[in-house]
């Protein structure tokens, strides 16, 4: 009888902890730092082709990738992406669960903070600096690597 109760409670505890464990699961994330310019010859490097659909919605016509960070992120542990001007952007995985991941992007240079929930495979494109001289810096975040 005692063993049956023990087994039942162990099952309850395991099941109760399952959703919490899934919510804190590490998530491979690809973060790219881009510079977008209004002037110059329009162009999109081959490495940014997957972003064409999103980047083409903006008024910036020339794009270049300046950096990339690939990390296995865990919730509430920010990843810092350095900007050429000495600043940095902090990307934090707020929550990761089946079918959705929530990221927080803190960009002190533009005094902007966002919290976006996306499905796996989708990308976030966020401007992280104000425009200067016709160009601005962006980060793209893709959950799932």
């Amino acid at each position: 009888m005692r063993s049956e109760w023990t087994a039942a409670w162990v099952a309850v505890l395991l099941l109760a902890s399952a959703p919490a464990g899934a919510a804190d699961a590490p998530l491979p994330v690809r973060i790219r730092l881009l510079q977008g310019s209004r002037q110059g010859t329009p162009g999109l490097p081959p490495g940014l082709e997957d972003l064409r659909g999103q980047l083409s919605t903006t008024a910036y016509v020339r794009w270049e990738q300046a950096g990339e960070v690939q990390a296995t992120m865990v919730p509430r542990k920010p990843v810092s992406v350095a900007l050429p001007d000495g600043g940095a952007v902090a990307v934090t995985l707020v929550e990761s669960r089946a079918g959705a991941a929530t990221f927080e992007v803190s960009a002190p240079a533009s005094r902007t903070q966002s919290r976006v929930t996306v499905a796996p495979g989708k990308r976030i494109v966020q401007q992280v600096t104000a425009e200067r001289g016709g160009s601005a810096w962006f980060v793209t975040i893709k959950a799932g690597g």
Partner: peptide, 16 residues
């Protein structure tokens, strides 16, 4: 039910 769904589920942006 939270499989492939909309590209973004919630967006919150604050800028000073």
């Amino acid at each position: 039910t939270t499989g492939p769904g909309p590209s973004e589920l919630a967006i919150e942006v604050t800028s000073e």
